[in-house]
Amino acid sequence: MDKSIGNFSVSLNVKDIKTSKEFYEKLGFHVFGGDITQNWLIMQNDDCTIGLFQGMFEKNMLTFNPGWNNKAQEVNPFKDVRVLQEEFRSNGINIINEADTHSTGPASFLIEDPDGNPILIDQHR
């Protein structure tokens, strides 16, 4: 049984995206995606990915992207976000914000670990 929940990254709630971008560049990260004019960037260093988000959510969160590898390339097969949501629910995990089970394609849902850390399962395809 496939246990993959997608490519992993950390999504950071930042106060000033330009300052954060400059800081992470000093650590060796480079801009991989996003739009700084919309206050979000995806940065990478080797196979480590972080997202910088200014004013989009309250807490830092773990993020998983079903159907993608760490270069945002499609992987097949992959487990759809709605299937993952139902598997998590059947395992007793509380779904905080649900993906529409009647939809297809891009969707996301949010859960929290026992310490209140948000985990976003975010499918882009």
Results as ranks from 00 to 15, higher is better:
residue 17 I to T: 08
residue 74 E to V: 13
residue 13 N to Q: 13
residue 73 Q to T: 10
residue 10 V to N: 03
residue 19 T to S: 08
residue 14 V to C: 02
residue 28 G to C: 03
residue 19 T to P: 00
residue 13 N to H: 13
residue 29 F to H: 02
residue 9 S to W: 00
residue 43 M to F: 10
residue 26 K to V: 08
residue 39 N to E: 14
residue 22 E to C: 02
residue 19 T to D: 05
residue 57 F to Q: 11
residue 38 Q to L: 15
residue 60 N to V: 06
residue 69 N to Y: 05
residue 41 L to F: 03
residue 49 T to A: 12
residue 30 H to T: 15
residue 25 E to N: 07
residue 57 F to W: 14
residue 51 G to R: 11
residue 67 G to N: 02
residue 18 K to F: 03
residue 21 K to G: 00
residue 66 P to M: 06
residue 53 F to P: 00
residue 64 F to W: 00
residue 41 L to S: 01
residue 11 S to K: 02
residue 13 N to T: 15
residue 72 A to S: 12
residue 69 N to T: 05
residue 21 K to H: 02
residue 30 H to L: 12
residue 18 K to A: 07
residue 60 N to F: 05
residue 20 S to I: 04
residue 48 C to L: 14
residue 46 D to L: 12
residue 36 I to W: 09
residue 48 C to E: 11
residue 62 L to S: 08
residue 45 N to M: 13
residue 54 Q to L: 08
residue 70 N to R: 11
residue 26 K to G: 13
residue 48 C to I: 15
residue 56 M to T: 07
residue 77 P to S: 08
residue 44 Q to W: 02
residue 45 N to G: 04
residue 71 K to P: 00
residue 69 N to K: 05
residue 8 F to T: 10
residue 45 N to W: 05
residue 68 W to Q: 13
residue 45 N to C: 14
residue 45 N to Y: 11
residue 42 I to L: 13
residue 30 H to W: 02
residue 15 K to T: 13
